[in-house]
Write a protein that binds this DNA or RNA. Structure first.
Length: 577
RNA sequence: GAUUCUGUAGCUCAGUCGGUAGAGCACAUCACUUUUAAUGAUGGGGUCUUGGGUUCGAAUCCCAACAGAAUCACCA
């Protein structure tokens, strides 16, 4: 069943038929040999060189604009690397008397958005623009829907840019074709991932894969997605973190392991949260969190250099310097710095009082760790614009972290805050199996108090620790947030190709067979649809006399003169069937 | 989940006090041999998101639904 087509869609389908009638296949099967890209042509052309008609370039892409000037035309071809102007002359395409290929095929039957392959030679127009003088043009794929046309003038100001987020996110493919800046964000995203991977590989750490479907969702405090395995008849969870699996691999004897992992959390969505997101987790044996902090600042500095060849990165109004070393503050120092309150000696009751005084709402079931986390999040985070390591978290909010070597009640943990947002979370990993079991039991108590995010006990993980895990430091990087930072995007949806959206509402239209069953001729269906009669139930409700009149009018409007109108008896037949 | 804002042509947007729906680009027809977001002339294209209500009359006012955004809540 075909959806209702607008004028331009109908027109392009008609052109498709005409193209076939000319003996041209609009969707040819053969490969198209390409020997040049627009970016290279523009980069390598030496201004002032006379055209070399023997040096034929062959390239392929989408037509993005036409400027037809009678028997000569300009158009723009967009390939994967950019755009170039092409110059098409009637007498080049049609050396013989028959000018149909230019006059009809090129001028009338090609549209913006069509994929074509061209052969030609590079030259400069009188205005100086590097262009391709086309000697041959072939259709590679016809486009049936009009692209929104975005134009950019010489100052880089764009006109009619597609800005509607719903359109951009639901039809990212169109957004990418039409908005080059969007494409650039995703190129940078991949470049960031490559930069990180290169760095980790240079230390010979091993890239691994661990389960996404987990019987026990561990390694983080978050609400999981739940699914079901039919053969085993057990619930399975989509992973919220891969930490516990990577540590098992350290137990197994690897020196360093890492994974770019998709994690899934069944929580709210906003411009910094998507239900699925990418985290890089890295674990290195025989290291501690002090080593990891240095490793982290070097890594971020490298990303900045790889991307921009400088450590200064523009994020919104601010310039952020990724030049190592970064500032370090303990969590208690940070809270004292921004609130003037020293909470280091306070118990749960007193912390609750502090929250009340600072007007911070906290859940009734919150434990000490949660309370401190709330205070920090509310009072400090947004002040930390330049990269800052916050270190030494209270033990209650870090159930997988080794106790601090010298400060009681704290753990060896840091988070890196940049532009008011957490970018990564790292610690000296807890490898004392007995301590770990006690920490899990604390989490169970929190669960009993109503914290539905507290961790489950993973018995196999504890067993692994009992076999012995070397001292290890681990870190998790929020790769999407890092990408947001380095591409200057303020929402996570803009650094994900396909952010999560509510499914599009689909109009339940009657199928062709449904119409045929009640006796409607197939050729009449478009007329009924254009009259907005989309279901059989609607059709049966209409007044046959009115429909008879309406159909006549609509047939004329749609220029379907060849279609024979139904008689009034025919219409009554449908309605009474 | 709560509040606020938004939804008009393929795209970007106007639309006055409630009185027959507008522009630019895109599209079509004609003209044009080097143009630079934008050549000229002419033309086609709309269930004004959907459903109710008020009204002689609703894109416009009211209610609800749907979708998106922002803020908050929840949460890395």
């Amino acid at each position: 069943m075909q959806a209702i087509l607008n004028e331009q869609e109908i027109l392009r389908r008609e052109k498709l038929t005409q193209i076939r009638q000319m003996g041209i296949e609009p969707y040819p099967a053969e490969l198209y040999p390409v020997n040049a890209y627009t970016k290279d042509i523009k980069k390598n052309f030496v201004p002032g060189t006379p055209p070399d008609t023997n040096n034929i370039v062959q390239l392929a892409g989408r037509l993005m604009s036409f400027r037809i000037q009678g028997s000569a035309s300009f158009a723009e071809l967009q390939d994967s690397t950019g755009r170039i102007q092409i110059y098409v002359r009637r007498d080049d395409l049609c050396p013989s008397e028959n000018k149909e290929y230019y006059n009809t095929f090129f001028k009338k039957l090609l549209d913006i958005g069509d994929f074509v392959g061209i052969k030609g030679y590079v030259f400069q127009t009188q205005v100086g623009e590097i262009s391709i003088h086309v000697t041959e043009i072939n259709l590679l794929a016809k486009s049936l829907k009009a692209l929104p046309i975005v134009k950019t003038d010489e100052n880089g100001v764009s006109y009619d840019e597609v800005t509607d987020p719903e359109f951009k996110y639901r039809r990212r493919y169109v957004d990418l074709v039409v908005n080059p800046k969007v494409k650039d964000v995703f190129l940078k995203r991949t470049k960031i991932f490559q930069s990180v991977r290169d760095y980790l590989n240079s230390f010979e750490y091993l890239e691994v894969e661990t389960p996404i479907l987990q019987a026990i969702p561990g390694g983080a405090t978050a609400r999981p997605f739940i699914t079901h395995h039919n053969a085993l008849d057990i619930p399975l969870y989509m992973r919220i973190a891969n930490e516990l699996y990577l540590k098992r691999l350290i137990v197994g004897g690897f020196e360093g392991v890492y994974e770019f992992a998709k994690d899934f959390r069944n929580e709210g969505m906003d411009r910094t949260h998507n239900p699925e997101f990418t985290v890089l987790e890295l674990y290195v044996a025989y290291k501690d969190y002090i080593w990891m902090a240095e490793f982290t600042e070097n890594l971020l500095q490298k990303i900045a250099m790889d991307l921009y060849k400088t450590t200064d990165v523009q994020v919104g109004e601010k310039t952020i310097s990724f030049k190592a070393p970064f500032q370090r503050l303990t969590m208690y120092e940070a809270i004292e710095k921004y609130t003037g309150i020293d909470i280091s000696q306070k118990n749960e009751e007193e912390l609750r009082e502090v929250c009340k005084n600072l007007k911070i709402d906290v859940p009734a079931h919150a434990g000490k760790g949660k309370l401190i986390d709330e205070i920090f999040g509310e009072t400090c985070e947004h002040h930390l614009i330049q990269p800052t390591f916050i270190t030494d978290y209270p033990v209650e909010m870090s159930p997988l972290t080794k106790k601090h070597r010298s400060k009681a009640g704290l753990t060896e943990r840091f988070e890196l805050i940049v532009n008011g947002k957490e970018i990564c979370n790292a610690y000296s990993e807890l490898n004392d199996p007995i301590d770990q079991r006690e920490r899990f039991e604390e989490q169970m108590k929190l669960q009993a108090r109503g914290d539905d995010e507290a961790m489950f006990i993973d018995q196999d993980f504890l067993r692994a620790l009992e076999y012995g895990m070397p001292p290890t430091s681990g870190i998790g990087f929020g790769m999407d947030r890092i990408t947001m930072l380095f591409t200057n995007q303020s929402s996570i949806q803009d650094v994900l190709f396909f952010p999560q959206m509510r499914p599009e509402k689909i109009i339940e239209m009657a199928k062709t067979e449904d119409y045929l069953t009640i006796g409607v001729r197939e050729e009449l269906i478009p007329i009924l649809q254009k009259l907005n009669i989309m279901t059989i139930a609607e059709l049966k409700k209409v007044n046959p006399n009115k429909l008879f009149g309406d159909m006549g009018g609509m047939r004329k409007k749609l220029k379907l003169d060849q279609v024979k109108l139904p008689t009034k008896e025919e219409i009554e037949g449908w309605i009474n069937s």
